[in-house]
Design a protein around this nucleic acid. Structure first.
Lengths: 166, 166
DNA sequence: TGTGAAAAAAACACGTG
DNA sequence: CACGTGTTTTTTTCACA
């Protein structure tokens, strides 16, 4: 089953990925110093990791507070019926909501768990949740308002790869 | 000093932020073409947005599947007591778990909502959740296994800023 | 605010172990 | 065959109009 992905990853690659997850704007030189690799080597490996689809893309992370997004919620959506079609339609629509940062289908009481951001509570309930309720097939929506952001990371753990080298 | 963040954001800045959230590796030239701005103008504005703390950092996003992270869970942690200290200790410890990508304190039944990734269900339950249970003050942990990732975005909505110009 | 020059960085080709 | 070194090309930043 494991045909190639892991086998390309030696311990240098892992350190490299860790560094890029932390700061993708560091120069190859700087990254090379951190991971004990030459700049050209960093360049080569980065290209390989991109081509392999391990590095998906590079993005800028913004500060929600600084752009007036003061409220975050975790919401639970239950569909009226689970006949397949409802789900697909919902999934297509939900992806178009910019306020919905994440949406996962889950096993359990609710069908979907969403992470939503909005300017304030008023906008969240009167606009975003309101619009979500109107999506075809949506039965109920329950929400948890986020009081504090303890951790919010885009860095995937790499420790489980540490053992094997290529 | 300017305390009002929004006042620095005209419609060019908003387009610029949108572009950087999508692809921070595009050259200033390319971004400039998208948002109808010269490369030097892009450079200037990017520096301003960074200095203003609106752009927090640049990161590489990896593909979880490609590095062997096949399982994702949303977990709910309830503390045994809410006497303040328990919460702080938990928050400090939880941040050190690389598998815990996100952790929010919420109003509701549980005290914290977590997003966790792991190689497989075995590792999730036998290692990650096991270790979480042992943190001081943790009462119960309930989890939802993610069946499908419908949307997982780092792009914050900017539509609410569109109206005012500086 | 745009234009062009200077600085920096990345990509590339080469020679070496 | 993989590595580092030096070169070329690209990109960014800065000075000036």
């Amino acid at each position: 089953m494991i045909k190639d992905e892991d086998s390309l990853l030696d311990s240098f690659d892992i350190s490299l990925l860790a560094a890029l997850q932390r700061d993708s704007h560091a120069t190859h030189q700087q990254i090379g110093e951190q991971v004990h690799l030459s700049a050209s080597q960093v360049s080569r490996r980065v290209q390989r990791l991109q081509a392999a689809g391990i590095i998906r893309r590079y993005v800028a992370l913004l500060e929600p507070q600084a752009i007036g997004l003061g409220v975050r919620a975790i919401s639970y959506v239950t569909l009226t019926r689970h006949s397949g079609d409802e789900g697909l339609a919902f999934e297509r629509e939900i992806a178009a909501f910019p306020e919905v940062l994440e949406c996962y289908s889950v096993a359990g009481e609710s069908d979907y768990i969403l992470q939503i951001v909005a300017a304030d509570l008023g906008v969240l309930s009167e606009q975003v949740l309101r619009r979500l309720t109107r999506i075809q097939g949506v039965g109920s929506i329950r929400s948890n308002i986020v009081l504090g952001r303890i951790k919010s990371s885009t860095e995937l753990p790499l420790g489980h790869l540490k053992r094997s080298s290529a």
